[in-house]
């Protein structure tokens, strides 16, 4: 479960102070599917980075379960990201020189798992997203939808508690978008994940249990 108490995040941009999050207080229970919407520059991605332990708030507290994310050192935040949080990005963010299977294996590298076990789990993860036959292909040989499936397999192979998706269907056509959302929804349901999706797409947002709107750094329920 995520708990955010009076979380604020400010940046200095060209000597100008920009408030990305303003005094956000929020709770996201474990196993919930949450969609976050809002205009560009409203603070969606910043909120996702806070939830993903990629950044620390300027003020306030963020907790994931028993872990206080706002004050942990980088090394421990890295450990939490390695074990508990999976990421899916709009641009897929696959490593272009590695095959699909090797891309999935990168998520297991920090966990000290043996090479054989890594390979087995990567193959299983690819099979779970319907890409068992594409394991040896590099991203450039895969379609956008297939690349996003590889990215989802990479996020889930370590069996995290939380999956954070930043515009996961932003680069896909409607048909592929629906396929990906079906996949994510199925995985969420099967695995009991906490799934947080940042999206501009109302059709995607409507599939969530809970919809949040963020504008000028302020979060409201919809």
């Amino acid at each position: 479960m995520y708990t955010l108490e009076n979380v604020s995040k400010t940046y200095t941009q060209s000597k100008r102070k920009v408030t990305a999050l303003a005094d956000v207080t929020l709770t996201i229970p474990s196993g919930q599917l949450v969609a976050i919407q809002g205009p560009t520059g409203g603070g969606k991605s910043t909120l996702l980075q806070m939830l993903g332990a990629l950044d620390r708030p300027t003020s306030g507290r963020i907790s994931l379960g028993e872990s206080e994310l706002s004050h942990l050192p980088d090394r421990k935040l890295g450990g939490i990201r390695a074990k508990e949080i999976g990421f899916v990005f709009q641009g897929f963010n696959l490593i272009p020189t590695l095959t699909a299977q090797e891309n999935v294996e990168t998520a297991l590298a920090p966990l000290g798992i043996s090479a054989e076990e890594r390979r087995r789990r990567a193959v299983d993860a690819l099979a779970s997203v319907g890409l068992a036959d594409r394991a040896g292909h590099v991203p450039g040989e895969l379609s956008g939808g297939q690349q996003q499936r590889v990215a989802i397999a990479r996020a889930l192979v370590k069996e995290p508690d939380v999956l954070l998706a930043d515009e996961p269907t932003g680069n896909l056509d409607e048909e592929t978008r629906d396929e990906i959302m079906d996949l994510l929804e199925g995985l969420w349901r099967d695995r009991g994940l906490t799934l947080v999706i940042v999206t501009h797409d109302t059709a995607v947002a409507k599939r969530a249990e809970r919809r949040l709107h963020i504008k000028h750094g302020t979060v409201t329920e919809r």
């Binding site: 890295g78 990421f87 590298a109």
Partner: peptide
């Protein structure tokens, strides 16, 4: 940059 950012996001340590 994005590649290394992604690796760090999925838990790769600085040392790695």
């Amino acid at each position: 940059t994005r590649e290394f950012g992604t690796l760090k996001a999925i838990g790769w340590s600085n040392r790695r």
